[in-house]
Deep mutational scan, measured.
Amino acid sequence: DETGKFLVLALYDYQEKSPREVTMKKGDILTLLNSTNKDWWKVEVNGRQGFVPAAYVKFL
């Protein structure tokens, strides 16, 4: 149950560059965990948590 969690859509592919980031593919649906930083949002994708560039995702 994803109640209270926001979902975001990956607009572009992103390859993680550090262990704190996660890789996503364009079209992936991600669970948004934290968006307090304007540049990097914490998400969960494929069972992994990490950061992606905020400009690469949008709210569903």
Rank of each mutant, 00 (worst) to 15 (best):
V45A: 10
D13K: 02
N46M: 08
N46P: 05
I29C: 05
F6D: 09
K25W: 08
S35W: 13
P53N: 02
G4T: 14
V52M: 02
A54Q: 05
G27A: 03
P53W: 03
Q49T: 15
N37F: 08
K38Y: 08
F51E: 04
Q15E: 15
N46R: 14
K17E: 09
L9F: 11
E21N: 05
L60G: 05
Y56A: 14
T31N: 10
F6S: 13
V8A: 11
L11R: 06
E44L: 08
A54H: 03
F51T: 03
K17R: 13
V57Q: 00
F51R: 03
E16C: 09
S35Y: 11
D1W: 09
K25Y: 12
P19C: 08
V52Y: 01
L7F: 15
G47Q: 06
T23L: 02
R20H: 15
F6R: 14
P53S: 02
N46H: 09
E2G: 14
N34F: 06
S18C: 08
T31D: 05
V8D: 00
S18T: 14
K42T: 07
N34W: 07
T36P: 04
N34D: 15
L11P: 00
E16W: 04
G47L: 05
Y14S: 01
G50K: 02
V22F: 13
D28T: 07
T31M: 13
K42A: 08
F51M: 09
Q49R: 12
T23W: 04
T23Y: 04
L33F: 04
V22L: 12
A55L: 09
K38G: 10
A55D: 10
N34G: 07
W41D: 00
A55I: 11
G47V: 02
D13P: 06
L32C: 08
Y14D: 00
D1H: 13
T36G: 10
E16I: 05
R20W: 15
K17C: 08
L32P: 01
L9C: 08
D1L: 14
L32D: 00
N34R: 06
P19L: 09
K17S: 14
E21V: 04
L11V: 09
K5E: 11
G50D: 00
Y56N: 05
F51V: 07
K5P: 14
L9H: 06
G27T: 02
F59L: 15
L30H: 02
F6H: 15
Q15R: 10
N34E: 15
Y56L: 15
Q49I: 13
L7V: 09
G4Q: 13
L30S: 02
K38W: 06
A10V: 08
P19N: 11
L32G: 03
P53G: 01
L33Q: 04
G27Q: 02
L30E: 00
S35M: 14
Y56K: 07
R48I: 09
G27I: 01
V43S: 00
A54R: 10
A10T: 03
W40L: 03
D28N: 06
Y56W: 07
F59H: 13
N37G: 11
K42L: 15
L33M: 08
F59Q: 12
K25C: 08
A10L: 02
P53Y: 02
I29K: 06
R48S: 07
